[in-house]
Design a protein around this nucleic acid. Structure first.
Lengths: 243, 243
DNA sequence: GAGTGGTCTAGACCACGAG
DNA sequence: TCGTGGTCTAGACCACTCA
């Protein structure tokens, strides 16, 4: 049995996907839409909530509901540093980095396999493409580093990778754990997504050739426009049965 | 400014996480909770919605709200067939398989790199552990196969893998694309999750040593209890800059 | 039929953004 | 100040489950 909010959501979704309402257009106000569809405002808002959690609509308090489709997509490529966008529009990519020092605690202790309260360097990176935030990364490197060694402030993508690579030994094994979850309120605010839109969370642990963990990263990407790509080459004959 | 539904959600969440309300317990009815917290029913339901989308609570129409924590976790291991559960409680794993034949269309054409309307074999697999569904997989193999060659019905995990491996050449390269999205209504029903809980969707394409695609799989796992694990070994010296 | 959640209404008042 | 969305109320009626 189709509920009214589903009918309304389907109607609006079709208008957005077929381009009848274009990207960055403002929808009519919720009151107008409610009277147009002859429903109460909570019902209309429920319909919009579905579109929000699909990433088609962004609500901005005091301004209105804005169409956000099509989205610039982000592809995280597993097994390496770069964050790629499908458009390869690298010129518009910017990273803001903030570096701090802290002591290992909680989850970081087990991730990095270091003693509790040992010194760490934390890099908080916000990746932008033009106006829209793409991804949030928190990178942890064991050991205290002098402030002069740390990158900070806005950078381009390539120079950031080079800076980080210089901070730690080369990686021999990378393990990445991917999950889907609701964003924390902070993540939702920084990425400018609805709290109801899931994020793709990637926990990345890099070890050197001796197996020592030399880097851990917590990456968060908006679920409506991100995916992660992994390519593996199983040895013929053991084809996956090697667990 | 903390809204009432946040306060209520935080209170209930704390009670669940600290074990004051135990797994499979039924919460008081929404009317009782609403009067206890002195809010209206829609407000209370908004609070429960947050817990639902975190997978802590399952609503069952006509019965009540049930605590679902801690969850049995599922780990998908990239680069191979098996779906592993963290508990390694393999005895309880069951797979229901339904095999059909169909003609390539839409997304499948580009995934499998086959001509439109060429024959395919589809395996729809539902993975259970005890009562709770774990994952939904749709596996596509090019070519029409005789019904006798196809697995069907309930199976154990190992024999299913063996059957599928016999249906196609060995895999030389596996590419997996992971994304987070809301479930389709069918997926939500089959996995018994709320439509507001994101799923981890994995698109897996396997090619043989000539580069020909011999298998594609669409995997869907509930976001509240699943993650995917990938391990890669970058060559020293090219450390990820090989994009 | 009793009890549960599912949907919806028609308002009210508050908070934010822009002029 | 005005229009926008954000939150909330106090009901109503429907659909599902189970005894």
């Amino acid at each position: 049995m189709p509920s009214r909010r589903h009918v309304i959501a389907d109607d609006l979704r079709a208008q957005i996907l077929t381009g009848r309402i274009k990207t960055d257009d403002r929808l009519p106000s919720e009151a107008q839409l409610a009277s147009h569809y002859r429903v109460s405002t909570p019902t209309l808002r429920n319909a919009l909530a579905a579109l929000q959690s699909e990433g088609l609509v962004e609500k901005i308090h005091g301004k209105g509901n804005f169409v956000r489709y099509p989205r610039q997509r982000v592809t995280y490529v597993g097994g390496g540093w770069p964050l790629q966008t499908k458009s390869s529009n690298e010129s518009a990519l910017r990273i803001s980095v903030h570096a701090t020092s802290l002591l290992a605690h909680g989850q970081l202790v087990s991730l990095l396999k270091v003693p509790a309260n040992s010194p760490l360097t934390e890099l908080v990176c916000l990746n932008h493409e033009g106006e829209s935030p793409h991804s949030l990364a928190r990178v942890y490197i064991p050991g205290g580093l002098a402030p002069t060694e740390l990158p900070d402030g806005p950078l381009c993508c390539v120079s950031f990778e080079a800076k980080v690579a210089a901070l730690r030994p080369p990686l021999a094994e990378i393990q990445e754990r991917v999950s889907a979850r609701p964003p924390t309120p902070e993540e939702a605010a920084v990425l400018r997504i609805s709290p109801t839109l899931a994020v793709l969370a990637i926990t990345r642990v890099g070890a050197d050739h001796t197996g020592r963990v030399v880097e851990a990263a917590l990456l968060v990407l908006p679920g409506d426009r991100a995916d992660a790509l992994f390519t593996t080459h199983p040895m013929t004959g053991e084809r996956g049965e090697d667990r």
